[in-house]
Computed example of a mutant assay.
Amino acid sequence: MAAVKKPLNIVKMKKMKENKEPITMVTAYDYPSALLAEEAGVDMILVGDSLGNVVLGYNSTIPVTLDDMVYHSRSVARGAEHTFIVADMPFMTYHGSIDESLRGVRRLMQEGHAHAVKLEGGAEIADTVRTIVSAGVPVLGHIGLTPQSVNQIGGFRVQGKDAQDAKRLLEDAKALEKAGAFAVVLELVTEEVAEAISRELSIPTIGIGAGRGCDGQVLVFHDIVQYASPYIPKRFVKTYSDVGSLVRESIANYVKEVKERSFPAQEHVFTAEDGVVESLYGNRKAEVDN
């Protein structure tokens, strides 16, 4: 009998960085995808507020609520009982009073069953990160392209293209490390800058569109398996299968067979004992047959 997988923890993650062992993370939003990700051997699962775009049909992450995040985090936790799970703090849930921020964290941990929370931002949220960590909750930072502030930063632009921006990113990363974050996501950051930041930090960096020099990588479940319609290719994503086309084709074949009355076939039906039909109609059986 195979040994039960032990979830990764923040001490092991730091050791993985020291040993130059890449960390794998998948963003998932529900029970079946989390179960499959765990069975595939992923190190961590992120319940991202990108669920707004991917599974809720919004055009950004901004409409995603704390209730949404709790619901989806709890679903993922049921599917991946032996995997370290990080849940996103959604838009504007950690920029007000610290009491309000901690209430959101508490809900994600107690109701959503997450092991850690993720916050977007750098030096400007360092005090909030420090307080959450002091409360005993692991925090994953997130800098570079931060989707919650995409309107402020001018759209989905690659970060770290010039010296000034690179310096800002490094300062943000160091501020998060000093505040107690256990790792930092670098999103859409130039490879050179992401690699330099990874060398400077003692905590792991998890890249998405940030090149080959990070300590780990994260991709969205639906991107990995191309589960969308229409699927929009992204330069920083590698798709490993085309599940969307397979799903569409399968449902189309089902519709076709129902219309043709070829489904259900003999092997899909159940038969009753002799006399059951007669017992339903009684003396009317002959009339029905006629």
Rank of each mutant, 00 (worst) to 15 (best):
S101D: 06
A116Y: 00
G141F: 02
V150T: 14
P230K: 04
R74T: 05
L8P: 01
V26Y: 02
P264G: 07
A126Y: 00
T239R: 11
K234F: 00
E278C: 02
S241E: 10
H268Y: 12
I197H: 00
E195I: 04
A179W: 00
G207C: 06
G209Y: 02
N290W: 01
I23L: 11
S149T: 15
A116V: 05
V255Y: 13
A126M: 07
E200F: 08
D172K: 11
S262H: 15
A272V: 12
R248K: 14
A196K: 15
T131H: 11
F221Q: 04
T128Y: 00
T61C: 06
K285I: 10
N9S: 10
M44N: 04
I10A: 08
G104C: 05
E81W: 01
G216T: 04
F263P: 07
D274Q: 14
V269K: 15
A272D: 15
Q159G: 07
I45E: 00
E177L: 09
V225H: 08
R199T: 05
L51S: 05
V193M: 11
L51P: 00
H142V: 13
H268I: 04
R74N: 15
V243R: 01
V247M: 13
A114W: 00
K17M: 05
V189H: 07
V139K: 00
D49N: 08
L246E: 15
S245W: 05
N19T: 09
D223R: 03
L56Q: 14
Y58R: 03
Y254V: 11
G122A: 09
G155P: 08
F91T: 05
D99G: 09
R107T: 10
Q217A: 04
F270W: 12
M1N: 10
E81V: 11
L102K: 11
A286H: 01
I208Q: 04
R107P: 03
H82D: 14
V11Y: 10
T83D: 08
G136F: 02
L108F: 03
V117F: 00
P63K: 14
A194D: 13
D49W: 00
A175E: 14
P204A: 09
S134F: 08
V185P: 02
